[in-house]
Each structure stands twice: as structure tokens, then as C-alpha cells.
Design a protein around this nucleic acid. Structure first.
Lengths: 167, 167
DNA sequence: TTAAACTTTCAAAAATAAATGAAAGTTTGT
DNA sequence: ACAAACTTTCATTTATTTTTGAAAGTTTAA
């Protein structure tokens, strides 16, 4: 396999994975492309390499910057903007975890708290509902807190986690 | 808020979350419905409560059983089948983690290994590509192993994780 | 073996999500 | 202030995913 094929395969795979994880395909593909690029890449290049439209490239680059995992760069004497990806994987994972916590876990917790707090008239249905949603609330809250703690380590958190675990 | 509204809100929320995590909306809704039901529920009831077609109910119940988080039950003297959800959250999370590892992480690892193993002709592009995909392979592999270890605890793994972490 | 009671399948339809591209907007150099 | 060089927006189109429902399949009991 030569570089061009490998690069393409990597981009396609990362894109497919992305769409299974709530990130859209193009967004994940752009990120993949930037991750394996030596140099910062212009929007024109992204469009060219992935064969996508200007609008699509613009919207998804913006989204990646909102996630904090792609940065804009300016080159001296160049009017146009260049983009680079966060390449440090610990940092990348932390940013993704934080963003998903904010966007998905926190709002879900709010609803869980709300629905688990209904008044019970002691029917079996109500008792079961309150019990299960309360458990769910506790579980998700605990998981979210662990995530928070883990990501506080930033550098090498995964390695540190492995070490803690093997003890 | 009364039970009916709360139940509905819970089902909708869980469904929306599901679709952000690569599980389809109906599948997540059915699971939510079963989680808060005292009794095993028939397909007819699922169709009725969620206002979905027979085919949809059948396909998604099957998918939930494939994931190992919904079980079939037979009632004495009843021809039709009833369904219950895994209600233990530790167990539920472990099953989901295992399934996603199998379906998504393992195949991704295979590709990462493949593309990171190309012959290099020492261009900057190739060096960067190999370096980054190798790092990614190592990272994902390590993460997958940690997941494995964690889920080996089964009972109370989350609590145990918290304890390890606070030390 | 038959038929009633139930479940599964899958082609077609509907719903949803993503991509396009041209027009509007912005920034920069002269 | 102007216009060239570039980016963003968003109504429309296109692609993808999900749902439907009727037909085919299966199981059970008599």
C-alpha cells in the first residue's frame, strides 16, 4: 500500500467512525486529513482533497473550531486562512470528552433529575419509574464526575489510568 | 408533572440521546420504555405506546436483543412474546461497552494498524502520516484495553473506579 | 394437517440529515 | 473609498436513514 491509498483509507475510516459517534462524516474526515498533514491546510486544499463544496468545508471547519480541536493559522503574506488539527491525542480526547459532557450529558442529567422528582401516588408503575430514573441519574452523574476527574490529568491521563488500574 | 408526562419526557430524551450515540431513536425509546416498566411488555404494547409500526417494533426489539440488553420472556398460557430490559446499570453499561468495542473499536484498530504499516520513502508527509497513525493505534488500543479491564469488574465497576481515583 | 395467532422480512415511502453553490458578507491593500 | 481575495450563510437539492405495512414465515394447539 502506498501513502496515497493509506491516507485515503484512514480518512474514510475516521469519517465512518465519526458518524457512529454523533459527529458528522465530513467533519471527521476533515479532522483526519488535518491530523496527518505536516503543514497547515487551506480551505481550498480541504475542498480539493475531500471533493466537497466550499460551503460544506466552511461549515465543518467552523464546527471543528467550535469543538476546539482545529485551529486557524495565518501565514505571513497570505490573505487566506490555514487550518491545523490538535494532534496531541490526550488533549484531543479531553476536549472531546468535555464537549460531549457539556452538550449531551449535562442536559440529560437535568431531565433525569426533573422526571425522577415527580410526586408518587404509590402505584407500582410510579414506584418503578422513580426508582429507575433516580438510579440512572445517580449513575450518569457519577460517570460524568469520573470523566471530569480523569480529564483533569490532561497529560498522559490514559497512561495514568492504566497504572492506577493495574495496581 | 404527573407520571404520564414524566414517562414520555424520559422516553423522548433517551431516544434523542441514543441517536447522538449511534443507536437509532426508536431503539433507544423502546429500551427506555422497557426500563421503566414493572412488567414485561408485549410487542403490541410497544407499538401502541410509541406509536410505531409492527415492522419497526420487531426490527428494533431484535436489535436490542442482539445487543444483549433486552430479553424475551414467555408467560404461561400466552402465545405471544414479552420483553424486558436489562435494568442493572452496571451490567447495561458493560454490555454496551463490549458491543461497541467489538463493532467499532476493533475494526478501527485493524485499519489503523494496516495504514500505519506502509513502507516509508522518508518524505515529510509519509513520516508524519506513519507517526500520527501509529500514535493513534497505540492510543486506541490502550483505551480499549482499559475498557476491557474496567468492565471485568462487572458489579459496581463505576464505584470501584471512583474509589481508585480518589486515592 | 390445518388454521389461528403471532413474528419477521423487505421493497417502497417518508423523514431526516447533509451537501451544494450562488449571493451576501468581510477583510485587506492601495 | 474601492475592489480584489477570500469566507460565510442559507434556501434548495441530494443522499442517507428510518419507518411503514403487506406478504411471507413460523409456531402452536387441536
Amino acid at each position: 500500500m502506498e501513502i496515497k491509498e493509506a491516507k485515503n483509507k484512514f480518512i474514510q475510516t475516521w469519517g465512518a467512525l465519526g458518524s457512529q459517534w454523533g459527529i458528522n462524516k465530513t467533519m471527521a474526515q476533515i479532522h483526519a486529513l488535518l491530523m496527518v498533514s505536516t503543514e497547515a491546510v487551506s480551505m481550498e486544499d480541504v475542498m480539493e482533497e475531500l471533493q466537497i463544496s466550499r460551503g460544506n468545508a466552511s461549515m465543518n471547519l467552523r464546527a471543528l473550531m467550535d469543538w476546539g480541536i482545529v485551529y486557524k493559522e495565518y501565514k505571513a503574506g497570505e490573505r487566506r486562512e490555514f487550518f491545523t488539527a490538535e494532534k496531541d491525542l490526550d488533549e484531543l480526547a479531553v476536549k472531546i470528552a468535555k464537549e460531549r459532557s457539556k452538550r449531551e450529558i449535562k442536559p440529560a442529567l437535568k431531565i433525569l433529575k426533573e422526571v425522577s422528582s415527580i410526586e408518587s401516588n404509590n402505584t407500582a408503575e410510579e414506584i418503578q419509574f422513580i426508582e429507575q430514573t433516580t438510579k440512572l441519574y445517580d449513575f450518569v452523574l457519577k460517570a460524568d464526575n469520573v470523566l471530569d476527574k480523569i480529564t483533569e490529568y490532561k497529560d498522559n491521563w490514559l497512561t495514568k489510568l492504566v497504572v492506577k488500574f493495574m495496581k
